[in-house]
């Protein structure tokens, strides 16, 4: 695979990270294929997300509702909204097959909410499809390092 592809993928992931940290949810949803799934598994070994319990396994409708919930002002847990800054790095292309690219990256996310800093580190697996000179997200699986421990509420998109 080419460095050019790695560059393109990196630029795309950084753009996504920036949209999420700045809560530009409509633009984030536009990055997705409608059939795509946003998945936060509990079991670190899980790959059968449909038949296991996850923290979330969002289809298009759920993604839109989640984004709405985060900015509606109706949810006490996100009012005020947590502030986040995430660093996406260690980006590796695992597989390239036609227009489909499978990517794995590390994400370090710092959250500040009200009076407390939290730190979430994840391995993230993306399935991207080339579209219109850029990509669409076909699947995003966020594997929190502490996914099978007790965690605190997460009032934003990972």
């Amino acid at each position: 695979m080419s460095l050019q592809t790695l560059h393109e993928v990196t630029a795309f992931l950084w753009q996504e990270a920036d949209l999420l940290d700045h809560k530009e949810h409509d633009a984030w949803i536009a990055l997705w294929e409608e059939s795509g799934r946003y998945i936060v598994p509990i079991d670190p070994e899980s790959t059968d997300y449909a038949n296991t319990l996850n923290y979330s396994n969002d289809d298009h409708a759920m993604r839109k509702m989640r984004a709405h919930r985060l900015r509606s002002g109706e949810a006490v847990s996100t009012t005020p909204a947590p502030r986040t800054a995430r660093s996406t790095s260690r980006i590796v292309i695992l597989k390239e097959d036609g227009d489909t690219i499978v990517v794995r990256a590390a994400q370090n996310l710092r959250e500040f909410h009200k009076d407390r800093f939290r730190h979430y580190t994840s391995n993230i697996e993306y399935t991207l499809k080339r579209a219109g000179g850029s990509f669409k997200i076909a699947q995003k699986v966020i594997r929190l390092l502490n996914s099978d421990d007790a965690i605190a509420s997460i009032g934003y998109i990972l």
Partner: peptide, 25 residues
């Protein structure tokens, strides 16, 4: 069972649409 799993994820847990607000209260 998939419906039950998705309904659970919808409301419950730290990324659900219900539990975080209970937790905050």
């Amino acid at each position: 069972n998939q419906y039950r799993l998705r309904l659970h994820e919808y409301f419950q847990g730290p990324l659900g649409f219900g539990t975080p607000d209970d937790g905050e209260a």
